[in-house]
Design a binder for these strands. Structure first.
Length: 199
DNA sequence: CCTGCGATTTGCT
DNA sequence: GCAAATCGCAGGC
């Protein structure tokens, strides 16, 4: 059977990209372009969360909040952190599993002025998207996008145009369980990652 | 450069 | 009832 042509923009990442090991996805997302309503940039930092991972929301099993994580891959899992920040994750692995990649930092590339106006507290462009709560504020992602497909508007995810950058791993940030797992993935040497800097 | 703390809401025990 | 996948500000070195 010939492979049917893929719909959507050339190079756009579909559900098949996310239907595999969450660590492979987290690593391969570094260097990809993430746009939300035409605003965003290059992904430079992610973290992987597994089904049987004490640091993952999915560890407690299927609840109202974790329903999206247990659902099909290629969807957005957005939740409220510390009562204030919306954090954006990409659901991975087959339906019934529950793994997700947290998007932690972007290099701002498109619609810089829009992002600056949404984040007046950012003193420099380095502060626009250098954290999971910062980048959702900058690109405009909110809780209403929980469960939304990533392969259609208003999301646009593109594979790197050239060679993807080298990736370094380090321990995850802001968790209290499974703190030793090196499941934070960053573009090597990037100035756009969050604190503390890897390495 | 670093450390400490309050904001503010939800979800699970 | 409390901990939480964070951020920004204050204060000290």
């Amino acid at each position: 059977m010939p492979t049917p042509p893929k719909k959507g923009t050339a190079g756009a990442l579909g559900a098949d990209f996310f239907d595999r090991d969450v660590h492979d996805v987290a690593r391969d997302l570094i260097g990809c372009t993430l746009l939300y309503e035409g605003v965003g940039g290059t992904i430079v930092e992610t973290e992987a969360y597994e089904r049987e991972d004490p640091a993952s929301h999915s560890f407690v099993g299927l609840t109202e909040r974790t329903t999206v994580m247990f659902g099909p891959p290629g969807r957005a899992y957005v939740y409220l952190s510390y009562g204030i920040h919306s954090l954006l994750n990409f659901v991975c692995e087959p339906e019934g599993e529950a793994a997700a990649v947290l998007i932690r930092a972007l290099e701002p590339m498109v619609e810089l002025e829009t992002m600056r106006s949404r984040r007046p507290k950012a003193r420099a462009d380095l502060d626009l998207c250098s954290g999971p709560g910062k980048l959702t504020e900058a690109i405009g992602v909110t809780l209403t996008q929980n469960g939304a497909r990533l392969d259609r508007d208003p999301f646009l995810l593109l594979a790197p145009e050239g060679k993807p950058p080298p990736v370094v791993t380090s321990p995850r940030i802001g968790i209290t369980k499974a703190v030793e797992k090196p499941w934070r993935y960053s573009a090597a040497g990037s100035r756009w990652v969050s604190r503390p800097r890897p390495g």
